[in-house]
Nucleic acid binder design. Structure first.
Lengths: 138, 138
DNA sequence: CTCCTATAATTAGCAAGCTAATTATAGCCC
DNA sequence: GGGCTATAATTAGCTTGCTAATTATAGGAG
């Protein structure tokens, strides 16, 4: 049985989400939040528009996720005085703390996923996935 | 910038979904339906449980999708007389027709995604993605 | 200054996906 | 047969994600 690329991507993506789910839940997070914490890790203070692009979701989707994160004290949003349309997003201490756990969890999953891969194969895989993105982005 | 596997998978998956979206919409389908049509293509008459497993979604999620598909005349469900818990799912002519278009669409996207890949690279990619799934499945 | 357009974020309404709980049937053991 | 357990599907309630429409602000052209 020859699987399509679409099928394989879907399967892997679903599997990774599934692996994440229970731990995420235990941390009191929902599934959309980890990617935001991971993004903010190195870009604290980013504007919503940028975060959405970096997380590959629409600004409207991000808006809902951030509302929940703000409510549960993971981030705060501050309006920019020089341009009142922009909201910069900052992690709270709690957010930063959970962010670290998420990062650790991501790398655990990645390690397990890549069991048996040589250094060279990992590099190839990464370059293939990047190339696919670029090809479709046109 | 070194991206995590999780990030790259997420990005590619999101991009493929995005590419599908508009064409899917034009065919009158919603995003959950194509994978089911694609699955049924070679397995008409499968039982819901099997379809869910093959599509990497939960039976509960499939249930909702199938309700919509039955309502719009893409499939019919028939109870098995020998085991009244099982529902076999059959494509209608309309379903089969749209299934063919979906398959074509999938391969168009795949072709675009793999632009510049050698035959050997495609094979490697497929084996990597399969391996990742198996590693995580444990 | 006013109008027009562009941009950032949000809201509304929908589909997809999940878990947990429910319903209905099956199968086994006494 | 009666009662336990297992299994297939559905329903309920939630979050994520989308598009389309709305709100608020910015900025340029006349």
């Amino acid at each position: 049985m020859e699987y399509t690329l679409h099928y394989l991507l879907m399967a892997d993506h679903a599997m990774v989400q599934k692996k994440l789910f229970s731990d995420i839940r235990d941390m009191g997070l929902s599934l959309g939040q980890p990617k935001v914490l991971d993004y903010l890790k190195d870009r604290d203070g980013a504007v919503q528009k940028e975060i959405a692009r970096g997380c590959h979701i629409e600004p409207a989707s991000l808006s809902t996720i951030l509302r929940g994160m703000e409510k549960s004290g993971l981030i705060i949003r501050r309006m920019q005085e020089d341009n009142r349309r922009n909201l910069k997003v900052y992690m709270t201490d709690r957010g930063r703390e959970l962010g670290k756990e998420i990062t650790k969890k991501f790398s655990e999953i990645e390690k397990k996923a890549l069991t048996g891969f040589s250094e060279e194969e990992m590099e190839k895989l990464r370059s293939f996935l990047t190339k696919i993105y670029e090809n479709l982005e046109e």
